[in-house]
Design a protein around this nucleic acid. Structure first.
Lengths: 218, 218, 218, 218
DNA sequence: TATGAATGAGATTTCATTCAT
DNA sequence: TATGAATGAAATCTCATTCAT
């Protein structure tokens, strides 16, 4: 890696890459278009990155770093489940507003197949998987969360909805889908989304068979 | 092989297309590779479909039809919420086992952007969006489901988890992600997945603030 | 050459070929389009003619035969120069009205290069070249036509104008060119064209230096 | 050879295109062959021109510009009819010797049909049509040219012969045709051709009915 | 060193020709 | 025998990558 591209230029380059890859996929992206969008020459792009694949991975890395940073920041502080969930929801909604390209790229990556995708899944999802699962298990141990659930499974459901909400804020298809179900866009009604999602989570995670044994299951 | 393309060959062609598009995306797919995979000539492929885009849409159409057929079949019969959900879960798990390619293509489409994706979202998701939302609203009216939720939003959550479970059964990234959270693959433990997901749904959808007012919210 | 295509079908085939070749040139013509236009199968086309080139030559032959037939008919009768010219003009104008495709194909052929074209030029133009040249020489010997001209050259000029008039009646470019010079289309004003062309010919062919020695040459 | 395309190479590219299009027509020309003939890569060809059609038009444009330049130069100076005609004949004969490819392409274009050809006819022929017609009308007004002719028609005849002479110098078919009528090639005997053509023109344009009323019309 | 034009392999697409039916 | 779908070579065109300037 040479050192002559200014930090700002590198920034622009990665942003351009993220956007182009998110828009057209790894195969459909156009290296020349990326360079132009970033205002640098293709030659420079190839000096700094090792071909299209290498650059794609760099863009991906960039996106995932940013995502992880947000999550790390949010999950650093201890909090009760509801508050914890609220913070994550808010952070991710803000993230998809501010870094739509990153989320789009993440979505594109997740849809792509192959060894590479598997490897990246391990790197990216491993952290949150462990984090959420442990947190839920701790909640169970502490008596705050229902005991008749598998922490891993419920962590999976928890994270899945967060992913979907993010995609709904950034990716055309998921955005339209959200409109059909809920009306409007996620970023225009963060409070409503937060409220309903929290409600959903709260009861799913705290409900106990025993508490409702008198009710007729539907 | 100069025989007329048999129905089976045409079938193979679409399957090959579904697989290739699912694997490499719309841009990355290779028409020659598709023809070879199906064992026919490129010329024949172009005789039956109008270019790459046209063929892509045909593959998409086939995938979505199959998906809709399954959902239509399952949702035709009336049932209580839990039974209804159970059937859908089972049907979709079976579908992703038997038609992994269709689901992969659906996932690829959802990740792609553009007008086309938006239009397709409307066609594909509109049906389930209305279906689920109405079903939930009916459940509320009948007293089976909690009243303090927005039917649309909760339908969105409901469907989102189903999507994720399907993707986890078919797409490399989502599959790996599932392993990290839950261990193993969805299709190898359908009962476990069904049980936990139903548990999650049941409490999320039937919980009522009033019932648990004595509990400390976590 | 097999015998099963009816005369009418063969007719249609050649007509279709003439039109297609005239329209798109030898390289641009589409064999399938020709077969379709003629209402027969491509297989039959290939049974009767040996590939594209062979069929092209057949179409050409057809056109040239028709052209020669017209000229042969007209030049069979003896007549004075002016009457002779008048007849040819009229015959060719009618021919280009009734067989525009033949003339177009002739024009296309003449524009194409290569050995083939040279060979065909010999076959096609040889006849008229000899005919006109001899006629003019005879006119000179008989005292009807000026003596200070080379019969071959003047025959060339004579024929060249006839070609142009024909092209003007059938080929888009030449037709537009005619409109710019003369206004209207040749076939809509055959009398005017005949009159002026005859005037042109008459003076060109009968003028004698001696007769006008007293005039200042311009 | 990774140097920037030199002016000379660009020149060669157009020349190669003119030659290839002239030889095989617009449909039959081969872009790869053109690039090879010019010694550049196909990629470069496509960087400079917008597809086959765009490049064809560029080649055409170059040919027609050159033709117009020659005519403009020649017709700039005033002169009596005979001198004027002599100059044009000479200029065009030289032009077809030096730029055979341009003339061939012009001939190919004229034989091709379609809207495009009509439009180009308007652009190309319009200039000479007006020029010649006005010149002839002026000659009539000044008493130098016969009054019993339509200037437009005679201008058409005038130009038609010039076209044919040019084609005879460059296009295989027309060249062979010339040999049949006149013997030899136009460019090998420019003086003879000039002399005879002038003779033809002179009498055609200056003949007056009145002058020869005593002669028996042939 | 940074540039971006040139390269050319490889993709999409067409269409003359074949041959099973 | 006549058909016309299937073939696949060859055409057009794109774009990741190189490298002379």
């Amino acid at each position: 890696m040479l050192k002559k591209l200014s930090a700002e230029q590198l920034e622009r380059l990665l942003e351009a890459g993220v956007e182009e890859f998110a828009l057209h996929g790894s195969a459909g992206a156009n290296m020349r278009a990326i360079a132009e969008r970033a205002g640098i020459s293709v030659g420079a792009l190839y000096k700094y990155y090792d071909g299209k694949d290498g650059f794609f991975r760099a863009c991906l890395g960039r996106s995932l770093e940013a995502l992880e940073a947000v999550l790390a920041e949010v999950t650093a502080e201890e909090a009760g489940f509801k508050e914890y969930a609220r913070r994550i929801i808010r952070a991710l909604l803000r993230f998809s507003r501010e870094h739509a390209g990153y989320v789009r790229l993440y979505c594109t990556l997740a849809a792509s197949g192959g060894e590479e995708a598997v490897k990246l899944a391990g790197e990216i999802e491993g952290i949150t998987a462990r984090l959420y699962t442990r947190y839920i298990a701790a909640g169970q141990a502490g008596g705050d969360l229902r005991r008749d659930m598998e922490p891993g499974m419920f962590a999976f459901f928890f994270d899945s909805l967060l992913m979907m909400v993010q995609f709904a804020g950034c990716c055309d298809y998921y955005r339209e889908r959200f409109r059909l179900y809920c009306g409007g866009n996620p970023e225009d009604q963060p409070d409503r989304l937060e409220r309903e999602l929290l409600k959903f989570y709260e009861s799913a995670f705290t409900f106990e068979e025993a508490d409702v044994s008198h009710r007729e299951t539907v």
